[in-house]
Design a protein around this nucleic acid. Structure first.
Lengths: 252, 252
DNA sequence: GCTCATTTGTTCGTATGTATC
DNA sequence: TGATACATACGAACAAATGAG
């Protein structure tokens, strides 16, 4: 005999018309978001979930398949169903690239660390990151070389509470992998969506020096907010890009 | 007795391990792409499809649900399953907007037609639109005012064969609706995906005059390719945007 | 290399609920 | 009110991939 009238299938008669598969879906999603289920970890097999919750295999399947299409899970036949990290999600998400034209050649991008420090952040940045006044912020400055020549200057703001110990990483780490990979590997924070503002800015002072152009050179300015579960912002980034030879490419 | 061993379920024994739902999915997709099924039109109900193809309801359901998540179809309970036009697809797709900051106020955008003519197009544009030398191209020039002030200059290239009679539209039409809406309403061409290149350009000549800035003013240059079914390009567009007060906003 | 248990993938069938016209 | 169509849920069977022994 299987268990009936449990948390998922109860209340159906009492006017609760939420589908069972949806309740299960949300239950698993919450476990992932709370960190109870970690990226890479296998969830219970369909059969077990069906037994435990006292529902049919098909219902479990619907819940899981929905979470797969939302990017929370991925499945491998014969192996199991696993919690997605960024790597999986990112297959759907379109990266930026740096090209000279549609279908142009790929360039060699290299990352260079300029500085990483904890700062008492401004009200403006605090508002963007939705953080409290007493919370500190990491300020990460980097620049990217494009075919050995400086092309992008980039400042990221990250809440300290989300990225504890980020400043203890060896600096080489920031130059070997993208920030997204570092964030995924070390903190398991997946990117759900981004918002961006694009404009044109004339470079001045240090930025112009680092990118080796004369002051007043116009550049592409991209402000980007990255959000994880529950619309929580985890990064505010400002990138300044030279686009005289290469352009920013994206698909969507 | 239902029909068995038909086009979909045959060949299973002969080493064809393509799932039945996938064959049906492709069959419907082809009908949409070929125009046999038009946007807005209802497809046959699940039950009929199951009968006709001699498969179970669940199999039909899988095929349809996949096409829904791919954007080809949308469903309405109690009404039916319909072929998507742009409007439906676009609910998922993120539009560009023009804002002063994240969460800033919406602006008033107005479209103004500058010219629409058939041109013997250059090799460069022909390559982008994947068109043959003998095919003509429409060149559509417009500019957008942002809160009454000129902000965006925009040139679109569209293959004449895809948009027959575009030049016979009243010019007011191009000023009332977006190009996407006009294209959808009149030609039923859905946008599957876009590619873009972003860079910075200094405005000169006519463009500077139309946007009422002095020559040499830096502006955002966005080149965009729009593709419909089977990766067929249907528009190549170059937009030049002033971003001194407002910025280009997008979610993804 | 083979067998076997496990797990997901596909397909079938059926029943009932809910929305639309 | 009834007919139609999609939505949810159940159960069952077999196929295909994986990994352990």
């Amino acid at each position: 005999m299987r268990a009936r009238n449990n948390a998922l299938s109860s209340n159906r008669s009492a006017g609760d018309h939420t589908p069972i598969y949806f309740k299960l879906q949300m239950k698993i999603r919450t476990q992932i978001e709370s960190g109870k289920l970690e990226p890479g970890e296998a969830i219970l097999p369909e059969k077990k979930l069906a037994e435990i919750h006292g529902v049919s295999l098909g219902t479990v399947r619907t819940a899981i398949l929905n979470l797969v299409s939302e990017g929370y899970l991925y499945r491998e036949q014969g192996k199991g169903t696993f919690v997605s990290g960024n790597k999986i999600r990112r297959e759907n998400l379109k990266y930026y690239r740096y090209l000279s034209d549609f279908g142009g050649e790929e360039v060699e991008l290299a990352i260079h660390l300029l500085s990483l420090q904890t700062i008492p952040c401004s009200e403006y940045i605090r508002q963007h990151l939705n953080s409290k006044p007493e919370e500190n912020i990491y300020e990460l400055k980097r620049y990217f070389t494009v075919n050995k020549k400086p092309g992008i200057y980039c400042v990221s703001y990250l809440p300290c509470e989300l990225f504890k110990g980020l400043d203890e990483f060896p600096s080489s780490r920031f130059e070997r992998v993208t920030l997204y990979n570092a964030i995924e590997e070390s903190y398991g924070i997946p990117t759900i969506f981004n918002r961006e503002l694009i404009s044109v800015e004339q470079l001045e002072g240090d930025v112009a020096k680092i990118l080796r152009v004369s002051p007043g050179t116009p550049a592409l300015r991209m402000e980007m907010m990255s959000y994880t579960y529950k619309e929580k912002p985890y990064e505010y980034r400002i990138s300044l890009c030279l686009t005289d030879t290469k352009k920013i490419y994206r698909e969507f």
